[in-house]
Simulated scan of single mutants.
Amino acid sequence: MSSFLPPLKTLKVFEAAVRTRSLTLAAHELFITHSAVSQQIKVLEEHFGQPLFLRQSRGVEPTEAALAFYAEVKASLDRIALAAEQLTLTGKSRVVRLIAAPSVAMRWLIPRLSQFQIDNPRIEVRVTTTMSEYFEDVKDPFDVILWRSPLERSGYECIRFLDDVSAPLASPHFLELHPIKVPRDLVEVSLIHLSSRAAAWSQWLNKAGVAVRRKMPGTVYEHFFLSLQAAATDLGVAMGTLALVDDDLAHGRLKQLFPEVVLHGEGFHMMYRSAADSNPALKTFINWLTQMGQASAYDPERTHPADFPGEH
């Protein structure tokens, strides 16, 4: 069988010449001279004892036999390239393990993750959620964790990647039933509270110039996505994170009240393994997360002090 095998270095030249229909373009693509391409084609033709190209004024035209051979050569070169890629990646992790709060995973990460997987089909992102408000409670191993405050751990680095800006949100139908013209009107309607940010409404109303009692009445929900669902189904006005409801705002399912008054958190932070530079998959994912965070920026031209630091 090996006696039928042509010189292997001629095959790449042959493939480029057939694909481009030009010895000149093939030479340019392979970074060799035109004469070198001609010589390799001549070697191949002598090996098979027949011409493979018809020389024309504007290039070359492969013979019918050459076209049939080309199909097999290209398929074989593609398989070799794929095998080489797989061998290169052997021993290098292509799995990225990420932990985030359910609200961040559901409302921000997952809607964007499909495009990342399309662009990077060989990187598997495994998403795990945690209900805990305390980082110390997270026991599962991870490469990346998304948190609502800065974190520290040996062997990891932490950066701020997404703005954390909160504002009052309500459904259009609720606002039809309960006209709210000024911030003070909010005291008279049903407010939706989040247990992890119990003081958010008092902070927002004080910032809007409305004096309130220390404890605000209303319904308390344990998780953001529950409070958001309550607002979307006309149960009241929620204090919501804008980055997590951009789709609801864009499609009119929710409306932001009094956009001139917002609360600024410390920002969502991404903590990742320090060895990211030696892990191409992890580095690619971190760069993508950073870009997505910048695309979701509330106001990239300004920085703000945190109104409620250190909360998950």
Rank of each mutant, 00 (worst) to 15 (best):
Y156T: 05
D119I: 04
E124A: 13
V125D: 08
I145K: 04
V125W: 06
C158F: 00
R153N: 06
F142M: 02
P172W: 01
P183N: 10
W147D: 03
A167E: 08
N120P: 08
R148D: 09
I110D: 08
I145H: 00
E176M: 10
T128G: 00
R197A: 13
H193T: 03
V182W: 00
L186Q: 11
A199V: 13
S132F: 00
R126S: 07
I192P: 06
A170E: 04
F116C: 02
R126Q: 14
S149F: 05
V127C: 02
D140G: 08
C158Y: 01
I145T: 06
L194A: 12
D185F: 06
V165I: 10
N120H: 15
M131R: 15
P183K: 09
L169K: 01
L162A: 00
P179E: 08
I123E: 10
S154A: 13
S114V: 11
P150T: 02
L191W: 04
Q203Y: 10
I192H: 03
V144I: 14
L113Q: 03
D185A: 09
E176K: 13
E188C: 11
N120D: 01
L186P: 12
F142V: 03
Y134N: 14
V187Y: 02
D119Y: 01
M131F: 12
L151C: 02
T128M: 08
V187D: 10
Q203S: 13
K139G: 06
L194S: 10
L191I: 07
I192Y: 05
E157N: 12
L186T: 11
R197D: 10
P183Q: 03
D137K: 11
L169S: 11
C158L: 00
P150K: 05
N120V: 04
S171Y: 07
D137I: 01
P111E: 00
L191A: 04
R126L: 15
E124P: 00
V138P: 06
P172S: 04
E157I: 02
P172C: 08
W201G: 10
V127F: 04
W201E: 11
S190P: 09
D163L: 02
F135C: 11
E124Y: 06
E124L: 14
I159M: 02
H178E: 07
D163G: 01
H178L: 06
A167Q: 10
L175G: 09
S149C: 08
E124M: 09
E124T: 15
L175I: 06
P172G: 06
F174W: 10
A199I: 13
Y156N: 02
F174N: 07
P141L: 08
T130S: 15
A198S: 15
T128P: 00
R122C: 05
G155N: 02
E157V: 01
I159H: 02
L177Y: 03
F174P: 07
D164L: 09
Y134H: 14
P121A: 02
S171F: 06
T128F: 05
V127D: 03
Q117E: 14
W201H: 12
K181A: 14
S190T: 12
Y134F: 15
R197W: 11
F174Y: 15
I180S: 08
M131C: 11
L175C: 07
P141D: 12
L175M: 08
F135T: 12
S166P: 01
L194M: 11
I118A: 12
R148M: 04
F161N: 00
L169I: 07
L151A: 07
V138T: 11
V127N: 05
E188V: 07
R153T: 05
Q115N: 09
L177Q: 15
V144N: 03
S132V: 06
L113K: 00
L175A: 05
E133W: 03
